[in-house]
Every structure is written in structure tokens, then in C-alpha cells.
Amino acid sequence: CHSECLGNCSQPDDPTKCVACRNFYLDGRCVETCPPPYYHFQDWRCVNFSFCQDLHHKCKNSRRQGCHQYVIHNNKCIPECPSGYTMNSSNLLCTPCLGPCPKVCHLLEGEKTIDSVTSAQELRGCTVINGSLIINIRGGNNLAAELEANLGLIEEISGYLKIRRSYALVSLSFFRKLRLIRGETLEIGNYSFYALDNQNLRQLWDWSKHNLTITQGKLFFHYNPKLCLSEIHKMEEVSGTKGRQERNDIALKTNGDQASCENELLKFSYIRTSFDKILLRWEPYWPPDFRDLLGFMLFYKEAPYQNVTEFDGQDACGSNSWTVVDIDPPLRSNDPKSQNHPGWLMRGLKPWTQYAIFVKTLVTFSDERRTYGAKSDIIYVQTDATNPSVPLDPISVSNSSSQIILKWKPPSDPNGNITHYLVFWERQAEDSELFELDYCLKGLKLPSRTWSPPFESEDSQKHNQSEYEDSAGECCSCPKTDSQILKELEESSFRKTFEDYLHNVVFVPRKT
């Protein structure tokens, strides 16, 4: 048989008469490798580009789960590009990614509803959504962080984005990388972005840091009482949809009607710091009717980097990364020049730590249904340095008659930039024990000054392991946590139920 035959053949030295091919099969003959313009397919066939392209389009058009959109890589027609490569849609070739590779997620039936953290986790790592997304989240724990972890990498949506009755959302900033909504599939009414009845939605994105392009379709905003109209108009300008909307697409009466839409800028007039305090004062603000001013709200939190936005980490279910302080308005003076500047002394802060701070007014709604208010920009203030805590785990070892090696770990709280350490030492008198000992005694162990690591005695271990207080009263049991108490109650309830079950099964009433 021919060298490319495997198993047997019907005619000697003829690659077209093989029972099976050793390498690849091409047009009725066995070959060692697939010549151009053919590609290896499933490690035994040679196919042309049209064959591989037909497989790709067949799966793409069917949208069946589990099928493969075949691509070409290293002269092979394979189910998908290997790690580190992405497909070129024009020629199906796998090309190296520039940075992290995109991950295209194809949605069944063309859309997916995100109504819980669990459903959001199914899209973790996706960068391109081939379909439409509907966000409908009523509640949950730590929602802002969970949504950002699972949806934060999405850069492109081919269909539309719909935010509907998501009472738990305060902001859409968890879509931190969303840059493009194509609108290839539109919501009824030709809408590519749809926001309806979101009672706590206050911000779409921080438009000073976020760009969003909507290729096709219109915007729809109705019944978002805490979303200011200025935020919607800003989205029109940034996304390129200005002029597409009709009169009733953006409701003037049901958007922002319960919001404090600040239209003035508060400026800080005085800032002073110490290692654990920050004193702030800002310019006074009074609405047209000074009785509408209820006070100020001061927001602050630790910020290692200057990239904080107002609604980071917030949701309507209680999660809030900001510390909020309510401040009463100052006494009002008739003389504008003698107006008191409101302020606040922030206490209990960490030394040498940068804080993000902003302040906003708290006002009631005027009778004319106009909203007044003022808010400052987010500023960054760093507390002063102070003395560091003591170095940890000092170790001293003498390696000769004239040297001592000293080692330690950095302090747990540096409280500033540590530039150097101060080492103090003092000579001590020799131990009298060394002169009084009889060095001729056998088995004498000389006193040693070398360091030995501390260890816990058996008594201390027994005390720590004991669940009861000892007789001397030195140790006591740790208080039980809520989960331990709940577990004990469940076990007790189970024992009672099981005992009742045994009584009912074992003891049967005697027939009379």
C-alpha cells in the first residue's frame, strides 16, 4: 500500500485506493498535508475557505447554543480562536489581540433580562453583547459592586439597553466600559436606550469621564423622579442622539420631579488639616426662599486615587461607600458681607490618608415646582503625618564578641513616609551569675543571650482551647457569634421535631 494509506488498500502504491488515510483526505486521495488554498479540518480532512465560511455563517444565523462559528488559524479551520487571539470578521482569520481579548457573548432569543446578581454573573467577562440587555433589578445585597464585577467589562451592545423598574439602582456607572450601543435591534418605538419607572436612579454616568455613542435609535425617559433633566440632556449631547427624540420621548413632568437638581456650584473657602482632623468651610448658599434650606450634607471617604465619582458603590438597598454628615444651616444675616460661612470639623480620621470630599445642599421643593440647590466639586484632601507606631517583631542576635545583629519589621501604621529608623542602645553591667558559677561542674549549661522565638506554653494553649472559665478566673470563653447562636437554635429545633416524629412513629394507638 501507499505510504499515506492506513489499515489496508485495494490497489498497491495508489493513494486513492486506501481504506483510511494516515494524515489527511483531499478529493478522494490521501495526502501528507493540505496544500494551499485548503485548510486542515478536524485533523483528517482538507477543506477550502468557502466550506469553513459556510459553517461560520450557519452557526451565526441559527443562534443555536453550542454550535461553533468556525475560524481560520495556522492553516486550520477550527471552532474558535485560541487564547490571546480574536477573529477578523472580513476573512475569519485569528489575529493577536492588542491588550485583553474581546469576548463576544451571543444571547438566546436576542435579549437577556438581568433581574438578579445570579443572572448578571452569566455575563461575567463579556466585552461584546450580541443582542439586547434588559435591566430589571428590584433589590439585593452589595448590588453596585456585584454588577460592576460582572457587567463592568461590557464595551458594546449590538441591540438596545433597557432599564425598567430597577428600584435598587442609583447610577449606571457599573457599566464602566460601555462605549457603544449599535441599535441594530430596537425596542418598540425605535428606541435604543429605554429608561422607565426607576424610582431611585439619580445618575446615568459621570459624563466628564465617560463617552457613549448610540449609532441608531432614540432615547426614552419616563417616570424617573430623581433623575434630573440636565442629566438626560447631557446624554443626548454626548451620545449623538440630540435631535432624534420626539416631543413625548422625554417626559418633562415625570423626570426629576422629586430630585434636588443642583444648578449652582458650592466653593470651599477654608481648608485646614491635622493628622486626624480636617476643618472645612464653604461659601454660604440661600435659595430664593431661605426657609427652603434644610441644611447641608457632607460626604467623605478614603480615596487612594483621584478618580472618585459621587455615586460609586451606591445602591438604593443601603450600600453606600460614603460617610454622610448632616449639618444645620448657619444663622442668616441681613448683611451679605457678614454672612457666616458654614463648615464642619471632621474628626477621627487616619493620618497621612487622602480623602475625597464634597458637600451639597438639602432643600425642600418650592411652590413653583422649581428645584434649587448647590453642590461642590469633589475635592481631595490629605491629612498630615504623625509619629508612626512601633516597629514590629524586633530580633537581636550576637554573632561574635563585638557585634549584635538587630532586625525588625516595619510598623503596622507608618502614618507617613518613613525615611529612617533611630536605634538606641545602652551598655549593661555583666551578670554576677557568670562569676559565681563553678565551671568545672559536669552538665553545666552556660547562660545564653542568643534570641529564641517566643512560644506559647501548654497552660496558655489549654486556656485558649477551654470553653469555660478556669477556677483562677484568668480566662473566659469568647462570646458566641450570631451565626453560632442561630445554628444552635436550628439544631435544637431539629432535635425537638425529630423526637416528636419518633414518638408518633414508635407509639401507635392500640386498636379498641
Rank of each mutant, 00 (worst) to 15 (best):
K103S: 10
H106G: 12
E111R: 15
S116Y: 04
C126R: 01
T127P: 04
V128A: 15
L133Y: 03
L133P: 01
N141E: 11
N141T: 05
N142D: 05
L143M: 09
N150G: 08
G152T: 08
L161F: 07
S166F: 05
V170S: 04
S171T: 07
L180P: 00
R182S: 13
G183T: 02
Y191W: 08
Y194L: 07
D197L: 05
N198T: 02
N200D: 03
S208L: 04
K209Y: 12
N211M: 10
T213S: 10
Q216G: 03
G217S: 03
G217D: 02
K218R: 13
K218C: 04
C228H: 14
E231S: 12
V238I: 14
S239W: 07
R244Y: 05
Q245I: 10
Q245G: 14
R247T: 07
D249L: 10
A251D: 06
L252Q: 03
T254A: 10
N255M: 03
D257W: 09
Q258W: 11
E262T: 07
E262M: 10
N263A: 04
N263M: 06
K267M: 13
Y270T: 03
I271A: 12
L280M: 12
R281I: 10
E283P: 07
P287W: 02
P287E: 06
P288I: 13
D289H: 03
D289A: 02
L293T: 03
L293P: 01
M297Y: 04
L298P: 00
F299L: 07
F299M: 07
Y300V: 12
Y300I: 11
P304H: 14
D312F: 09
G313H: 06
G313V: 10
Q314H: 11
Q314A: 10
C317D: 01
C317H: 11
G318Q: 06
V324M: 10
D328E: 15
D328F: 07
N334E: 09
H341R: 11
P342Q: 10
G343V: 14
W344C: 15
W344F: 13
L345Q: 15
L345P: 13
M346V: 09
R347G: 06
G348F: 14
P351R: 07
Q354H: 08
K360Y: 01
T361E: 03
L362G: 02
E368D: 11
R369L: 06
T371S: 10
G373N: 08
G373A: 08
K375A: 09
S376K: 01
D377V: 08
I379S: 08
T383E: 00
A385K: 14
A385S: 13
S389C: 15
V390I: 09
P391T: 02
S398Y: 04
Q403F: 11
I404S: 13
I404G: 00
K409V: 11
K409C: 15
